[in-house]
């Protein structure tokens, strides 16, 4: 890896009795998207706040674009952009006015700010709405203006703190497209998200954070390989369960978990193919309703690493309505219960 553009060593942050960061290490390669993944309260936002000079670490060291965040905050501010969980723009101004004002405050000069605002509005297809008050914008448009406002200085490192939380799927895709474009131009993006598919789609490296610590790091593919896949079998009746479990144990080397007529087996290595499963189960005289081999999502990674689904809050966090907290998460929780049941 090239020498990291963001590097963090032993970062700690304490708010009173709460230890938000408990010795966190990170290294982000330039020109990549790095995903910080974790539940509410895991410490993701605290990392971003420290790296963007909004707050100071209690202990540890962090450099961004070659500057120590504690010693040279001014130099760091010249090299970064920050778009947070809010649409942090002035609702009582038009999109264009917002960008011009922020551009001047970002030291682009009056004319420079004007030109840059117009360019970015055009590039990100906001020209039509540019002269309307932001208060009339949709949630997705507000977030886009907010993102553009963080790009006024063409930052070397862009911090995106949960950039798509609360957005509709269409607007999420818009934001993702912008992020990919920026990275193609050489910007480094540090992204926090509780949406596992977001990290999966955008990030080339991911750190899973829990209780202020990195508990796993790697590419999404590496993390998934650690978990293996799942074989899902649904049998025709109670009588078929024992035979099916025996076949699955033999084929996968895993430990099948039974719930009603469903059998879920985690496979550490290579999973058998669906035709092979059907053939073997049929040969054992088992009536099969459904067979599937599911490759793990980052959801499974998170569940396996922390024992919780990502939508469930950690310390200090409540449950938020994430897209994962739909059928997928419920299935995951069911699976968790069934596995416990089987091992007890």
């Amino acid at each position: 890896m090239d020498s990291p553009i963001v590097s963090v060593h032993g970062l700690r942050k304490r708010y009173g009795d709460l230890e938000a960061l408990a010795g966190l290490d990170l290294a982000v390669a330039p020109g990549t998207v790095y995903g910080l993944l974790g539940p509410n309260g895991a410490g993701k936002s605290t990392v971003v706040r420290i790296l963007s000079t909004l707050t100071r670490a209690t202990a540890g060291q962090a450099t961004v674009a070659g500057h120590d965040v504690a010693a040279r905050p001014d130099a760091v501010r010249e090299a970064i952009g920050l778009a947070g969980q809010h649409a942090a723009v002035d609702e009582k101004l038009t999109g264009r006015e917002n960008l011009r004002i922020f551009g001047r405050l970002a030291r682009l000069g009056r004319r420079g700010a004007r030109r840059r605002a117009d360019d970015l509005l055009e590039r990100f297809e906001l020209t039509e709405a540019a002269d309307r008050l932001v208060s009339t914008y949709s949630g997705g448009m507000r977030r886009r203006v907010d993102l553009i406002a963080s790009l006024l200085r063409a930052p070397a490192v862009l911090f995106l703190d949960e950039p798509t939380t609360g957005l509709d799927p269409r607007s999420r895709l818009d934001i993702w497209a912008i992020v990919r474009e920026l990275v193609a131009e050489g910007t480094t993006v540090l992204l926090t998200t509780q949406y596992l598919d977001e990290a999966d789609h955008l990030a080339s490296a991911v750190a899973v954070i829990d209780h202020g610590r990195v508990i796993a790091e790697g590419s999404p593919a590496e993390l998934k390989a650690r978990i293996g896949s799942h074989v899902d079998v649904e049998v025709g009746g109670e009588a078929d369960l024992a035979g099916a479990v025996a076949v699955l144990e033999r084929l996968t080397g895993g430990r099948p978990a039974v719930e009603d007529l469903r059998i879920v087996t985690g496979v550490p290595g290579r999973a058998p193919s669906v035709p092979q499963l059907v053939r073997e189960l049929d040969a054992a005289g088992v009536v099969v309703q459904d067979v599937g081999v599911r490759r793990p999502s980052l959801d499974d990674v998170f569940l396996t690493l922390t024992g919780r689904t990502a939508g469930t809050g950690g310390a200090g966090g409540g449950t938020t309505g994430t897209p994962q907290d739909g059928p997928e998460a419920q299935k995951a929780r069911r699976r968790e219960r069934s596995t416990e049941g089987a091992t007890a």
């Binding site: 963007s52 000079t53 909004l54 001014d74 501010r77 010249e78 970064i80 920050l82 947070g84 969980q85 809010h86 649409a87 942090a88 723009v89 002035d90 609702e91 922020f102 405050l105 970002a106 030291r107 406002a149 963080s150």
Partner: peptide, 17 residues
């Protein structure tokens, strides 16, 4: 509350401004 202050504080804008 809306994050505008944080945005300004993360920019090279003069602190007292």
């Amino acid at each position: 509350g809306r994050g505008v202050t944080d945005r300004l504080r993360s920019m090279p804008t003069a602190r007292a401004a």
